[in-house]
Amino acid sequence: MSTGTRRLDIEEINDVTVVKFVDKKILDEGNIQIIGNQLFGLVDEDHRGKIVLDFSNVEYLSSAALGKLITMDKKVKAAKGKLRLCTIRADILEVFKITRLDKLFTIFPNQEKALEGF
């Protein structure tokens, strides 16, 4: 896999950036590094302030991937932006609940709900 491979599908809906993960499994260390860098670029380089992360394709997520999401959340907050998560399947939502990260992130059942009032 080349480091230039796009791991995120990005769409602008009104003034909100909707990001869909391309991968079903966000497990592999190298892949997580690339995904993290592409996510951080949305804030650090593109200065996007309202971001929705859509997990509809994602079937597996490791703690290393959670770490990248936490760093992303910090970056968005530091830039006074807002981050919302949506469409997380039940197994993965359980991972967020076990780790209490459902308290840190704002999670919506689907993209439509995530975009409401954003």
Binding site: S63, L66, G67, K68, I70, T71, I98, T99
Partner: peptide, 12 residues
């Protein structure tokens, strides 16, 4: 510890 990016592996 909630905002620490690592340390969740054993718990999972």
């Amino acid at each position: 510890n909630l905002e620490r990016p690592c340390g969740r592996g054993i718990m999972l």
